[in-house]
Each structure stands twice: as structure tokens, then as C-alpha cells.
Design a binder for these strands. Structure first.
Length: 190
DNA sequence: TCCGTATTGAACT
DNA sequence: AGTTCAATACGGA
């Protein structure tokens, strides 16, 4: 596996910023520079716990390589897997290796997210199909809610879920991301 | 308990 | 072909 790119920055969130920006106390955030912008991955003690789309305004919180050296070895290893996997998906290719995922949520949400991970690159499913896959054929709307609560977009491919009529459906945050991600995988939709 | 939701399919214009 | 509408399961307040 390749080493972390030199463009990767790390930041450690100060504990006094608890609750700020939705990040949790003690978590470690590492950014990933891609051709789609700078993503931010968040790690807990158990694994990758969150992934954020590139956003403006966070640059002032970033620090350089010196702080990155203070990141625990295990997390740096996870981050390499995360960065590689993210870039694979952005390139429209299936990710070979995943870091351990620390998916925090209810049992229902985790079952939905687990079902999402079974959708292979370039394929799509409807909310109804996901609902059926987890044994709750009528929980279609709840599936949508779980998708919106997905803490790790892209790697947990919530963007591969379309409405039953194969139209785009919705997305939390910029809908263009869903379009873009699908286009990167060669998926055509109405 | 009530409200909103990244749905769905059927019944209507 | 577009619009309205009720059923539905779950999560958050």
C-alpha cells in the first residue's frame, strides 16, 4: 500500500471545542486531498467514524505534518486505507481495502448501512430494495432516514440508492455530489 | 406522542 | 404525464 500523500494534513480537535461542527471529543481528524477537493476523515478509537465532503472555512483549523506525526500509528494506518479507498471510489473503481468502520447508530441504521456496502460499484438499488434486503419491506422511508444519517458517505455508498423510478431522489447536502459520484462510476440515471 | 423524512404506488386530474 | 395522497417505519424532540 502506498504511503500517505504529502498533501495530507492532520488536525487534532481541541477538547474545548466539544460539540463544535458536529465532531466529538477526543476524535482525530485527518484530511484527504483528492481531485474532488479535500475530504476530512474522523477517527475514533475503533476505526473510521466519519467522513466529510470538502468544505470551505475549515482551512484555518488544519495543521501540518509535524502534528500528523503525533497521530497514533494505528490511526495513520487506517487513514492510509481510507485515503486509498476514497480515491478508488472517486475514480469509479471498487476499493480494495477498507479501514475498520466505527459506525455509530441504532441497529436499524447499521443494518441499512451494511446493506448499502453490498451494492457494488456502478450499480444502484432503490430504497425499497434496501428495505427488502434488511427484511423490512415496508420501511422504505425509514431507509431514507438511515441513509441521511450515514456518517461515512462515499465509502458507505449511500449515493448508489435511487428512487424506485430510477430517478435521483434526494441527498443530504449538495445533491450535486450524488450526481457526481454516480457519474464517476459510470451510472446513468434519468 | 407528535412530527419530519433522501419513498412508494395508486388514484386522480 | 403531472399531481395529490395515504400508508409506513423509524428517529428525534
Amino acid at each position: 500500500m502506498k504511503s500517505a500523500p504529502p498533501s495530507a494534513f492532520a488536525k487534532l480537535r481541541c477538547d474545548k471545542h466539544v460539540g463544535c461542527c458536529g465532531f466529538k471529543r477526543g476524535s482525530i481528524e485527518l484530511s484527504i486531498a483528492t481531485n474532488a477537493g479535500q475530504f476530512v476523515a474522523r477517527y475514533s478509537a475503533k476505526g473510521l467514524a466519519g467522513l466529510n465532503f470538502p468544505a470551505n472555512g475549515g482551512a484555518d483549523l488544519l495543521v501540518g505534518q509535524d502534528v500528523q506525526q503525533r497521530v497514533p500509528t494505528t490511526i495513520r494506518c487506517w487513514h492510509q486505507a481510507t485515503a486509498a479507498a476514497l480515491k478508488q471510489v472517486l475514480a469509479g473503481r471498487p476499493a480494495k481495502n477498507f479501514p475498520p468502520l466505527d459506525l455509530a447508530g441504532t441497529e436499524f441504521q447499521k443494518s441499512v448501512w451494511n446493506a448499502l456496502r453490498k451494492i457494488s460499484t456502478g450499480k444502484t438499488k432503490s430504497y425499497g430494495e434496501i428495505a427488502q434486503a434488511i427484511g423490512r419491506p415496508r420501511a422504505v422511508r425509514a431507509v431514507g432516514g438511515a441513509c441521511g444519517a450515514n456518517p461515512i458517505p462515499v465509502l458507505v455508498p449511500c449515493h448508489r440508492v435511487l428512487a424506485a423510478n430510477k430517478k435521483l431522489g434526494g441527498f443530504s447536502g449538495e445533491l450535486n455530489w450524488k450526481r457526481d459520484l454516480l457519474a464517476r462510476e459510470g451510472v446513468m440515471f434519468w
